[in-house]
Amino acid sequence: MSCLGNVIWFIFGGLYGWLAWMLAGILWSITIIGIPIGLQCFKIASMSLAPFGKEVVYEHTNTSFLLNVLWIFLSGFWLAVGHLVSAVLLCLTIVGIPFAGQSLKLAQLSFMPFGAKIVRS
């Protein structure tokens, strides 16, 4: 079922989320200091493309807290807003509610991407 969910997700909004995360990753990777942040964006972009069958596990450290605070002000807020708008639009139909749940999972990940590990469920 996760394969079918990922195909439908790709058609109805997964591509846009993937493009947003890839753009953020490319912009962060322009500087040498931003490369680790860009790499995390690329990891999350792969989840944004196919979120079904994947879970997020958080492991907080002091470094991840500082990076998350910086991230929220520079990129995370706008990515989270995009995922929240997507979730609201997907909730307009009953069929879209499971997809809205995935979009909300990505919105939370948009606020706290550092210290997060993506695992298969």
Rank of each mutant, 00 (worst) to 15 (best):
M1H: 14
C3M: 09
C3F: 13
L4N: 05
L4F: 15
V7Q: 13
V7K: 14
I8V: 15
F10M: 11
F10K: 15
I11D: 09
F12W: 13
G13M: 01
G14P: 08
L15E: 13
L15Y: 12
Y16H: 14
W18F: 15
W18Q: 11
W21M: 13
W28P: 00
S29C: 07
S29N: 03
I33P: 06
G34P: 06
I35F: 02
I35G: 02
P36F: 10
I37Y: 03
I37R: 03
L39V: 15
Q40F: 08
F42R: 02
F42E: 01
F42S: 00
K43D: 03
A45V: 13
A45T: 14
S46D: 11
L49C: 15
P51S: 12
G53N: 09
G53W: 08
E55R: 11
V56W: 02
Y58R: 12
H60V: 10
T61A: 07
T61H: 11
S64V: 03
S64F: 02
F65P: 05
F65H: 11
L66A: 15
L66G: 10
L67F: 12
L67C: 10
N68G: 04
V69S: 10
V69K: 13
L70C: 13
L74H: 08
F77E: 10
F77N: 14
W78N: 11
W78G: 07
L79H: 02
H83M: 11
V88R: 08
L90S: 00
V95D: 06
G96Y: 05
P98I: 06
G101K: 04
G101L: 09
G101F: 04
S103P: 06
S103R: 04
A107G: 01
L109T: 06
L109F: 07
F111G: 07
F111I: 09
F114S: 01
F114V: 05
G115M: 02
A116M: 03
R120Q: 12
